[in-house]
Each structure stands twice: as structure tokens, then as C-alpha cells.
Amino acid sequence: MSRRGVVLFALMAVIWGVPYLMIKVAVEGVSVPVLVFARCALATLLLLPLALRGGQLAALRPHWKPIVAFAVLEMVVPWFLLAKAEQDITSSMTGLLIAASPIVTVLVARMLGSSERLGLTRMVGLGIGLAGVAVLAAPELRGGSPLAIVEVLLVAVCYATAPQIAARRLQDVPSLPMTVACLGFASIVYAGPAIATWPAELPGGWVLPAIGGLAVICTAVAFIVFFALIREVGPSRALVFTYLNPAVAVTAGVVLLGEPLTLPMIAAFVLILAGSVLATRSAKVVEPAATPQRANATA
């Protein structure tokens, strides 16, 4: 990998590892609809000039149905559920649960009719990964915040399903204009609820910087860097960085927010990571270079 590729790889590992921290801070000061709207609207405004410069927005019109479906599963639903869940559980826990997305992706692909043979290695990986999820989620399901755990696992399902739509229906759609269209659609969806729950006064502390960082760095800049990484190293190698995201999420939560780091969390991380690597080891994933897909989706 080139030096530029290494830099882009490291940037993505961090940029899509810290959103959980920023979400956790932001939901302390604003409602979930306000957070999602601000994130999407600001990112749309930043990326729109780049999309207009290419003159490719008109090319999206014939594909509007799968684009809407992709936006719903990649942004509209999961970003709401993530913010809602982090009102009750730590950002570290959230990041680790989302790490199971590659495992869920394999299961979703099979449910959607994939003819790819799993094989013993991938079956073992699925089992190990699901065991890691069970180790992580069991204490919360027994008496902590079971609804929040279910919400994050639903996010993993959304992140696993959205790339299937992209791979099947959006291979020829330019990535940046599609991203802007999805963000714009999400902004419209949450505009009304955001206005209805808008805070009476500006929140203090780190709330506004967290919202700004989430929109600018973890959304707008993230997609630009991601597309650059794809061009540099290819779509399959570009997605390897997502295996580092959970470690970044846990480190950020523990160091900056003082969240607990327990032995079950460490064990779950090892199991989920090992399971994800094994479950996707032989996968022949269809990943168009121009589509913003995620092997291990981030917030």
C-alpha cells in the first residue's frame, strides 16, 4: 500500500470510529431528531457544491427508488436508532455491537438468495461472532437496557442490508451525488421532527462541537476520504479499515468519557473481530467502487 493509502486508511479508521463518542455527547443536549437533522443538513450543504460541480445529480433520477431505499437503511433509520440507543448505553458498547455488521451481512445475503457457499470456516466465524454479541449483550438484556441493545442490533441489520441494495441496483450510480441525495433526503425527513423538538436555547458544553464534528468530520469529510481511499487501494482493501473502528470507539469512550472497560467487553471484541474475519474470509462480495458501502458499518 502506498504512503497516501496508509494515511487515508488511518484517517478512516479514526473518522468512522469516533462518531459514537460524538453522538453520546450530542444526545445529552439535543433531541434525537435535531441531532440527525443537523448532521445530515450540514453535511449536505458541504458536499452539495462538489456534487453540482460534476453535473451528475440529474443522472440519479432514474434510480430514485433504490436510492431512497438505500438512504432509509443507511442513514434515516440507523442514525436515529443509534442516537436513541446511546441515551441509555455507552458509546463503547454501541461501537462493539456495530462491529457485528459483517456477520449480519453474511446472514442477510443468504436470506436474500445469495448462492455463495458458506463453507466450514465461514460457518465457524458466524458462530464465534454471534457468541461475541451474546457475551456483550447478555448483561444488558438481563436487566440493563434491552431496548437499546435491540436498537443497535437493528442498526447492524440496516447496515448489512443497505449494501445489498447498492450492489444490486446502484452499481452505475456516481457515489458523491448519490451520497448528497441520501443526506438531503434524510434532512427532509427529519426537518419537521427537528423543528418540533428544537431546544429553547443553545446547548452548552461540548454538545455543539460534537454535532459539528459529527456532521463535518464523520460525515462530509469521511465520505470524501472514503472515496479517495477506494480510488487509491480499491473497494475490497479499502473496507479493511472497518475492523479497527470498534477499537477506536472503545478507546475514545474509555479515555475521553470515562466509560468502563470490562473483561466481557474485551472478550466480546476479540470474538466479534475473529468471527467477522472468518465469516467474510472467502466472501466474493460485489462492491462497486463508486458506491459508499461499508463492510463493518459505522455511525
Rank of each mutant, 00 (worst) to 15 (best):
I67G: 01
Y243L: 11
A283Y: 07
A238M: 06
I165R: 03
T105E: 01
L120G: 10
R3E: 12
A59N: 08
A299S: 13
S187T: 13
P199S: 10
A131K: 04
V152H: 02
V233E: 03
Y159Q: 07
A148F: 11
A137E: 03
V106R: 01
L35Y: 03
I67A: 02
G205R: 08
Q293K: 06
T90E: 14
T291L: 12
E28H: 12
A194W: 03
V76A: 14
A274D: 05
P139A: 12
L261Q: 08
L48T: 09
A160N: 05
P288F: 10
R53E: 13
A43F: 05
S91I: 05
L271P: 00
L47D: 04
H63T: 08
A238T: 06
P193V: 14
T291G: 04
P235F: 03
L81Y: 07
F9H: 06
L208V: 15
L244S: 07
A43R: 01
A109R: 03
I230A: 03
A238N: 04
P19R: 03
P235S: 13
A299M: 05
A41H: 03
E140V: 10
V150W: 08
P146I: 13
R110Q: 14
L136T: 03
R237H: 11
P62E: 12
I15R: 00
V233S: 05
V255Q: 09
V77T: 09
I224T: 12
P163Y: 04
C182E: 14
P203L: 08
I128T: 06
S101M: 14
R294A: 15
P260K: 11
L48N: 07
P260V: 14
Q293T: 14
Y243F: 15
F269A: 11
P264K: 11
L35Q: 08
T298Y: 11
A58G: 15
L136Y: 08
A138S: 13
G205C: 13
A131C: 14
I211C: 10
L73P: 00
F226P: 00
G127S: 10
P66V: 12
E86T: 11
V233A: 09
I165C: 08
W206R: 13
I230H: 01
A167T: 09
A210M: 11
L8W: 00
T121N: 10
V180R: 02
A267H: 06
L96F: 04
V207F: 05
A228C: 10
I103P: 03
K84A: 15
T179K: 02
T161M: 06
K65N: 08
V150M: 10
A148I: 13
V286E: 14
G213R: 01
L278Y: 02
I266A: 15
S115T: 14
V248N: 01
A137L: 05
M12L: 15
A247C: 11
P203W: 02
M178N: 12
E116F: 12
A252Q: 04
P102N: 12
F9M: 03
K65Q: 14
V255L: 15
F269E: 00
L126F: 02
R122D: 05
P177D: 03
G132K: 02
R3P: 06
V225W: 01
W206H: 14
